[in-house]
Design a protein around this nucleic acid. Structure first.
Length: 671
DNA sequence: ACGGGCGTCTTTTTT
DNA sequence: AGACGCCCGT
């Protein structure tokens, strides 16, 4: 088969179907095209059944994009049997199928979001006699950082017991790395971590809850202890494809390795230059040493960039060449030199935002760009607010992506937590979020009492008859009773009605905007009503798509993929550089490239600094034609004494890392 | 003693 | 936007 439109490396990556294959795909080298072609080739030419292929991506966005391209390109009666999903949802499905075969997870487990886990952690910290507020106190334990640490250990397949023993528990652990992590903590810190981790495990287990990291960890445990189950999946998934391999962490790496052990038809795609998730446990060594794991691996390099101008590629190459530990490859393009990279020094963050708003309007009028051609990328979400409001003031249509999504809106969150509590009315975490929404006279103290009591008796029975709660006043009692009646009603209803019907009557009964958000101005209230209406539409659509949609499945989908936001055309897109990975835009603004914010002050080790540089590389290579880099000269910074002060910062060191001939410095102006 | 309203501080990056 | 501390009303 001659495949027009693929260069020889791309074509080779497509045709090498048997045995291990490493595809090193530079930015903009047509990676997704190759993957889709490869799947098509497997199905049409190699006659592989779609059900025997699994393609794993990192983000929902990537999975969605690939699905769309496969559906429009590949015609096959059983194409829906192809498994294409993120690591997490793949593992969720495996766990749901296998939970009855093993004691590793209970059937009917539920999934906790990070914020739910944080609530659990806080309670653990408190119950162990530490404090999670008041930073200056001796007994202070930072819940977020403990949760991060637990996540790190779970990614390394270390449970609480294994942590305290400090002994390798199974052959899949990378014990050197684990020791390295352990060494970053003092003995005292480690004791605290161990105590909280143990209690956290116990509580999660008791509530029958799994966190995101458990999804992978538990599947690998099942594979380890049930060879029959593993072999079933090895037979099913004979052809394995893993995208963004440079972002895999240990447990994902082991998962892939176990799955591929039998047939060894594993193709991984990645770019070590774009590895930006090590803070989440991603281990760049997984891609760097793929050829050591599979000595007969074939390596294909996709080095031609089809996305960007010469200038952009040259700048990106010069920047990344400052990193030492990386695979030897190049990135080149046959595209035109194009525009120079524009550099703008702003007086302040306001001035920076105003410049961008102005420039977008100007380019749209003078250069024929649409609003949808622009993207503004920042290091941290903190930056989105100012940019968003400045663009709004200038009447530039825009959308903040990947930040606070639709499902993060508080009225939608209220409803989701109601649904979650209805789906499991014995869950104290879900209850806490809704018991006093709207106000029912139940405050922190009563809540604590209820939660404490729920350790020894079913939550629902406490709410039904709060006789064991000491000293509660009439008003509070009434509130609890009202809440119980409400939940009980919908709990019963959920057994019979569809998700959307349930949600619809819940929305009608709660009247959230009237009862909770009555203090908002008119416009905001209308906005909330519309969001709720939109949520109802989403529920209806999901009901329609899946005629036996259960409340549990509905919730799982929302938890695991809350960002199913359409990348709307006609809007300027705002997102983090992390969020922009895999995307491309005709015109890109990289904002906040000042010394203080980028590279991040938190990045202290050489390794972390290199990761910041890779992030810069990702940012630069998102641009097709026109790239703007901006930085504020002064920044409002909180000093150590706690006061906000204006500090003069200056430009990021990264800007000096590429040839100044590539840069055109723009004049600083007031707007 | 308890709930609720209001002011103040803080926020890397994400499945 | 959320979490938390402080103060006032019941």
């Amino acid at each position: 088969m001659i495949c027009l439109g693929l260069n020889s490396q791309q074509s080779e990556a497509m045709r090498t179907t048997e045995g291990p294959l490493l595809i090193l795909a530079g930015a903009g080298s047509g990676k997704t095209t190759v993957l889709v072609n490869r799947i098509q080739y497997l199905i049409n030419d190699k006659k592989v059944h779609p059900e025997n292929i699994v393609a794993v991506t990192f983000t929902n966005k990537a999975a969605k994009e690939m699905k769309e391209r496969i559906n429009s390109k590949i015609v096959h009666p059983e194409i829906q049997n192809l498994t294409l999903s993120t690591f997490h949802s793949l593992c969720l499905n495996i766990l749901k199928k296998e939970s009855h075969m093993t004691s590793i997870v209970k059937s009917n487990f539920k999934l906790y979001k990070p914020e739910d886990c944080l609530t659990v952690i806080k309670q653990c910290i408190k119950d162990l006699g530490y404090q999670y507020t008041k930073k200056n106190q001796d007994s202070y334990v930072n819940p977020a950082s403990i949760l991060g640490t637990i996540s790190t250990f779970k990614n390394e397949m270390v449970n609480a017991q294994c942590l305290i023993k400090e002994q390798r528990e199974n052959e899949y652990q990378d014990w050197d790395k684990i020791l390295e992590i352990i060494e970053t903590y003092s003995w005292e810190e480690l004791q605290v971590i161990h105590k909280v981790y143990s209690l956290y495990e116990e509580r999660m287990d008791k509530m029958n809850a799994l966190d995101f990291d458990d999804l992978l960890f538990k599947v690998v445990e099942i594979f380890m202890y049930h060879p029959d189950i593993l072999s079933k999946y090895q037979e099913k998934f004979q052809y394995i494809l893993i995208d963004e391999y440079q972002d895999t962490n240990r447990v994902q790496y082991i998962f892939s390795k176990l799955l591929a052990a039998k047939h060894k038809n594993i193709a991984v795609v990645g770019d070590d230059w774009q590895s930006i998730f090590s803070w989440r446990g991603a281990d760049i060594r997984n891609i760097l040493s793929f050829d050591k794991d599979y000595p007969d691996a074939k390596v294909v390099k996709l080095e031609q960039n089809y996305r960007s101008t010469q200038t952009i590629i040259q700048a990106a190459n010069e920047l990344i060449s400052n990193n030492l530990n990386q695979k030897d490859k190049t990135l080149f393009t046959k595209n035109k030199a194009g525009e120079k990279i524009k550099l703008y020094r702003a007086y302040s963050e306001h001035n920076e935002a105003a410049f961008i708003a102005n420039k977008i309007k100007e380019l749209r009028e003078a250069a024929g760009y649409e609003y949808g051609d622009f993207a503004i990328l920042y290091r941290s979400n903190r930056k989105s607010g100012l940019l968003e409001s400045t663009l709004n003031q200038s009447n530039v249509p825009n959308k903040v992506l990947s930040g606070l999504s639709f499902f993060e809106r508080s009225e939608i969150k209220d409803l989701i937590y109601y649904l979650r509590f209805i789906s499991d009315p014995n869950d104290p975490i879900f209850m806490q979020r809704v018991i006093n929404v709207p106000k029912r006279g139940i405050g922190g103290t009563t809540l604590d009492k209820i939660v404490n009591l729920s350790q020894s008796q079913p939550l629902l029975s406490i709410l039904q008859d709060p006789k064991d709660l000491t000293r509660i006043n009439q008003n509070t009692k009434k509130g609890i009773s009202d809440f119980y009646k409400l939940i009980n009603k919908y709990y019963e209803m959920s057994k019979r009605t569809s998700v959307s019907q349930l949600l619809e009557s819940l929305v009608k009964e709660l009247q959230l905007v009237k009862t909770v958000y009555f203090n908002d101005d008119k416009k905001k209230r209308k906005d909330r009503e519309e969001a709720i209406e939109q949520f109802l539409v989403i529920a209806k659509e999901m009901d329609k798509k899946n005629s036996n949609l259960t409340l549990t499945t509905f919730i799982e989908e929302l938890v695991l993929d809350p960002g199913s936001e359409e990348s709307n055309e006609g809007y300027v897109k705002l997102m983090t550089m992390h969020g922009a990975k895999g995307l491309e835009f005709p015109v890109v603004f990289l904002v906040g490239w000042d010394k203080f914010t980028f590279p991040s002050q938190q990045a202290r080790t050489e390794f972390e600094k290199e990761e910041e540089r890779r992030l810069a590389y990702v940012g630069i290579t998102r641009a097709e034609y026109d790239l703007y880099i901006t930085y504020p000269d002064t920044l409002m910074v909180r000093s150590k004494t706690g006061f906000l002060e204006e500090r003069s910062v200056g430009m990021s060191s990264f800007i000096g890392e590429f040839d100044s001939k590539l840069i055109k410095t723009l004049e600083t102006t007031y707007f």
